[in-house]
Amino acid sequence: MLLPLAGGALFFPGLFALCNWWLRRERPRWSDSDRAMVSTRVVSSVQAVLATGSGIIIIRSCRNVLRDRHWLAREYVWFLVPYMIYDIYAMYLCESYRTEDRRHSFTIFRNFLSKNRLMITHHAVILFILVPVTQTLRGELGDFFVGCIFTAELSTPFVSLGRILIQFKQQHTLLYKVNGILTLTTFLACRILLFPYMYWSYGQLQELSLYQVPFHIPFFCNVANAFLIAPQIYWFSLLCKKAFRLFDAPPAKKDD
């Protein structure tokens, strides 16, 4: 427990500081806001790759989706805890850099809470509910499903790249459009269809159909999954709206 906690506490802030330092040298004309935003997105993408890789290893190792064990299912959660705390601070730091008048720190903090309340709530649920559930309350069961939840991070690098391209006004590029398609595809597969897949996997073990599974698992499991998938559906709807505006926009007129 202590080793992955300490590792995460050093790794994620350290990677952010390293990216910020490198950008300060290589992109001296960039603003502090640009450097902080890009550094934050790089760290988020690295965490997503680590989480997805851990999830795939766990899934492939657990033949019995209920009882098979893998050490990453517990250890990576402890490694993830410092990241959640760091990420909240990194989001606040980006908000403070975007604010021209930095003297009114309370105003900055209030704006930060207002703009990011869903994401902050998401992080708080992970820290105060999912961590105790995965590390203590579930006992010796369900490493496979923890691995599945880890793979939900697969879409994060594409979301991060999209935010960077928007920051530098590159929405008109082919890269932005291709990245948008990949964002929608990975988000749908790994953050929404993931839940029916987990129900189906449990059903295969217990010889149940997909529709029977919700009635054969504890009620709180259904409630927890509902709370997890609800914000994902909301975020996916926002992504779809952005994609529709992008591809529905009329082409720019060429000069005669």
Rank of each mutant, 00 (worst) to 15 (best):
R191K: 09
T40C: 11
M84Q: 13
Y97R: 15
W200D: 13
T121C: 14
F236T: 07
F16T: 04
A152I: 02
L18K: 14
N225D: 13
A124G: 08
V146I: 15
F168H: 09
D32C: 04
S201Q: 15
M91L: 11
I85D: 04
V146G: 04
L113E: 11
K254D: 11
V133W: 08
D143E: 04
T52D: 01
L3H: 09
A230H: 10
D34L: 07
M1Y: 13
C94W: 09
G162K: 14
M1L: 12
A51I: 00
I229G: 14
T121K: 07
I59W: 08
H122P: 11
Q206L: 04
G147R: 07
R245W: 09
I229H: 14
K254I: 03
R60K: 09
L208S: 04
L5N: 09
R41P: 05
R67E: 10
L246N: 07
F195D: 12
A189Y: 04
S31Y: 12
C148V: 08
A48G: 00
V42N: 11
P196D: 06
R24F: 03
L165C: 06
L175R: 09
L93F: 11
F168D: 04
W78S: 07
G7R: 08
V46L: 06
N222Q: 13
I126N: 10
G147Y: 03
L184I: 11
Y97D: 12
D87M: 00
L182E: 13
A224V: 11
N64L: 03
V77C: 08
L161F: 05
T99M: 03
L72H: 01
Y234G: 03
L188I: 01
Q170K: 15
E95A: 08
S209G: 14
G147P: 07
L113C: 15
K115R: 15
M119D: 10
G55C: 01
P4R: 08
D87A: 00
W30L: 12
I56E: 12
D68T: 07
V65P: 15
L193P: 06
L154V: 09
Y211M: 10
A189F: 05
T151A: 07
Y89E: 03
R67H: 03
P13I: 01
E207V: 02
F195G: 08
A73T: 02
W30Q: 14
A230C: 15
F11M: 11
S237M: 12
S201G: 02
L50G: 02
T186S: 13
E75P: 00
F215T: 06
F168N: 06
I229T: 14
I108Y: 05
P28A: 08
P4L: 04
L246P: 06
L66V: 12
I233D: 08
P231A: 00
I120R: 06
A36S: 15
L113G: 07
K115E: 12
A17Y: 14
S31K: 14
K241N: 13
L208I: 01
C62F: 05
W78A: 06
F109G: 02
H123I: 05
S61W: 04
N179K: 06
L93N: 13
S96C: 08
S39M: 06
V213P: 00
Y83R: 03
V159P: 00
P214E: 09
P250G: 08
H216A: 10
C240V: 15
F220N: 05
N111Q: 15
M84T: 01
A90R: 03
I56K: 05
I129W: 15
V38G: 09
Q170S: 11
I56Y: 10
